[in-house]
Design a protein around this nucleic acid. Structure first.
Lengths: 128, 128
DNA sequence: GTAAGTACACACAAAAAGGTAAGTTTAATG
DNA sequence: CATTAAACTTACCTTTTTGTGTGTACTTAC
């Protein structure tokens, strides 16, 4: 039996087969749900930040990872980067409308986990 | 089973500072937002699945990764595992209420990405 | 009798992610 | 004059993650 996927005639333009190995969504998903990607989005949901401010805010990020993460999110159109060519470099990062849209969902997820952390921890212990 | 949430009294007050290096939320976040964790949650939002059904549905997962992911999600209290001790092993995986709650958010995220994929791809190209 | 299907575990290897330290540029500070 | 600070980049190395292949116990199908 074949898969019980959408089954519509518009197979050539399938609107989302995350389940298939080569769906482009997977790449975006990886950027957004990456360890540092999540935290960058959460941080930028609050406010615009400079590179070093983000670094201080997100405990544990290395400069390398923060830079890499920001570049990915910028390429995907979620993060807006503004560079002021001044003497000590000054760069500001903020979310694009698209970034705010997805950032809301990511932050929602993170918030939910924080809120339900006690419950989750209890669930874990009862299975230990 | 004496348990203070995070252990020490000083840490007992922070009810989830994802931004701090040692916040327990980070571990849960990693399980949930892991490459396969996301897809397992999305799949199980639709219906209960057997191990091999999940494997077939989620393109690209290896048995090892699927097993590992399911165990993590089970430990966190998101996935319910029912094993029927029959001749060819039969195990069913489903979401707990907690799992459905978080699964909804994860699926929402995945859906959003699928829906906005064209926009994202355009954004990417305009920066290339 | 042999192959296939089921739900894994285990060992080994390859790949990817991540960390560390150093370098860059130029102005202000001490 | 040396240091600091910004926002990175690059090289190098360690850690983590992921894949591959094998085995198990048993039954049904061919």
């Amino acid at each position: 039996m074949s898969n019980t996927e959408s089954g519509t005639l518009s197979a050539a333009f399938n609107r989302g087969k995350v389940m298939s190995r080569d769906c482009p969504s997977r790449a975006i998903l990886k950027h957004v749900t990456s360890q540092w990607g999540v935290l960058v989005l959460v941080a930028l949901m609050e406010d615009t930040h400079r590179f070093s401010a983000l670094r201080r805010k997100i405990g544990g990020v290395s400069e390398k990872m923060l830079a890499q993460t920001l570049q990915q999110l910028e390429q995907d159109g979620f993060v807006h980067r503004v560079s002021y060519p001044v003497v000590p470099p000054h760069v500001e990062y903020s979310l694009t409308p698209l970034g705010k849209d997805i950032g809301r969902r990511v932050a929602d997820l993170a918030d939910w986990i924080e809120l339900n952390l006690p419950t989750i921890i209890k669930a874990r212990q009862s299975l230990a």
